[in-house]
Amino acid sequence: MKESTFSAKVMHFFLSWALLFLVWLAFTSTLEIQEVLVGAATTMLVALFTLRFFDCCTFSFLAPGKLYNVIKYIIVFIIEMIKANFDVARRVISPSLPINPGIVKIRTKLKTNYAKMVLANSITLTPGTLSVDIVDDYIYIHWIDVKNTDPEQAFKDIAETFEKILLKIFE
């Protein structure tokens, strides 16, 4: 784990506190004073104890220039997800079970763990692919209908559209 300065630590603490508090408010969905106070105290304790795991992320993607890309990403993602579901449904229903599964690897240009996690989870919900493991720059993917085992070609088929937008958001 890399050394971070004190001010960065304080920043991360407040970010994770704010995030946890938002989750608390969403889950309890009430604004009564005792609930809010207990929530603030609990989430502060949790943020304190998990501080050393939360040195990853900032909210820089909420900057106005990047927000456009975030919205575009969500729309692309939802369309891909609906396509994925009809694809899976077609394979499950047809009596001959038309699958040709295998495991391929692709290389990603994304640098931070956070961005790689977003990419891997997006791959999981898109047609016919399931991310199995992330090792350094490589993502291993279970593909229900293998077309290419070559990493370059597989990357073009699976992850190119997502990575293009993610590069704009995170880098």
Partner: peptide, 23 residues
């Protein structure tokens, strides 16, 4: 139905996760 019909654990995960998430 997908996790019932598919032949191995990876394919079952594919069917199980995607379809039940959207469903």
């Amino acid at each position: 139905l997908g996790i019932y019909r598919m032949p191995d654990v990876y394919n079952r995960l594919q069917a199980g996760t995607k379809a039940t998430t959207l469903g």
